[in-house]
């Protein structure tokens, strides 16, 4: 009973925190330098991980797809099937989970450390809006970086698929990419990419909330880092289901 009350209490605090983030995101002044810095940290520094992961995921998906379609003599459909799989679901979700693991833990640990070492209190004492300076910039950086990383993930996934396919069957680059995009519509491409802004918001908000409100010294910092990854990943997966249904509702042809 106590744990459920604590969970509800945490969820209430989280909701209020999210509302503050939304409200503060559109309020001036904008901490542009910090935002760029966080974008650099979250986006740029995550690029290698995303590209490598994309290549690996694309290659593996291509191999598995080939094994299935080969039975029906439909190898020419591999690029189409791979494009659908990567662009519509695998790319956005894998990118978000990777960022959740890498960035969520970092944000939780960093803000948690600042909280337990009273650095945030020091900023407040210097009349700096720590929420706007620390939280909003990180959340916005996640919201901006996630779609861009998803695009990167999509293309690296398709590239990984192409590499696998061209090594196995010698498929040409032009045929592969023409076939991959010939069956895709805008509704298959734009909504799944843009939904990762919500993923970014979830990762940023959950991680910042856990770190910003961390207590209990070094142990609390570690707990905040761990919970950031776990909870943001869990929320990502749950919200993804809702978003997919929402996209289908808005774009019936996207199925």
């Amino acid at each position: 009973m106590k744990s459920s009350e604590a969970a509800l209490e945490w969820f209430g605090g989280m909701s209020i925190f999210s509302g503050q983030v939304l409200r503060q995101s559109f309020a001036r002044p904008v901490e542009l330098t910090e935002l760029l810095k966080q974008t650099f940290e979250i986006g740029w520094r995550s690029s290698p991980l995303i590209i490598l992961s994309g290549l690996a995921v694309g290659g593996v998906l291509s191999i598995h797809t080939r094994a299935t379609l080969e039975r029906f003599g439909a190898e020419s459909m591999i690029p189409t099937a791979l494009a659908f799989a990567v662009v519509k679901e695998t790319g956005p979700l894998v990118a978000a989970l990777l960022i959740s693991g890498r960035v969520g833990a970092g944000i939780g640990a960093e803000l948690g450390g600042m909280r337990v070492t009273e650095q945030i209190d020091a900023l407040e004492s210097l009349a700096v809006d720590s929420f706007k300076y620390l939280v909003i910039t990180r959340v916005l950086a996640c919201v901006v970086a996630l779609p861009l990383l998803t695009v990167l993930m999509n293309f690296s996934g398709l590239a990984g698929g192409f590499l696998a396919e061209t090594m196995i069957s010698g498929m040409s680059f032009s045929f592969y990419f023409h076939a991959a995009f010939s069956s895709l519509g805008f509704s298959d491409y734009i909504p799944p990419t843009l939904k990762t802004m919500v993923f970014g918001f979830i990762i940023g908000t959950v991680s910042c909330h856990l770190g910003y409100n961390a207590t209990g010294g070094a142990e609390g910092v570690g707990r905040a880092a761990t919970q950031s990854v776990v909870l943001s990943s869990m929320f990502l997966i749950i919200v993804n289901v809702i978003l997919v249904k929402f996209i289908f509702f808005l774009y019936p042809g996207a199925g």
Partner: peptide, 27 residues
Amino acid sequence: KKLMVGIFVGGCLLLFGVGLFLIGNSN
């Protein structure tokens, strides 16, 4: 760092645009 962020954002937006173009072209 600003340059890298610019490259990252610009490059990703460019890729996104390429995707849009390819899909639009196929349609």
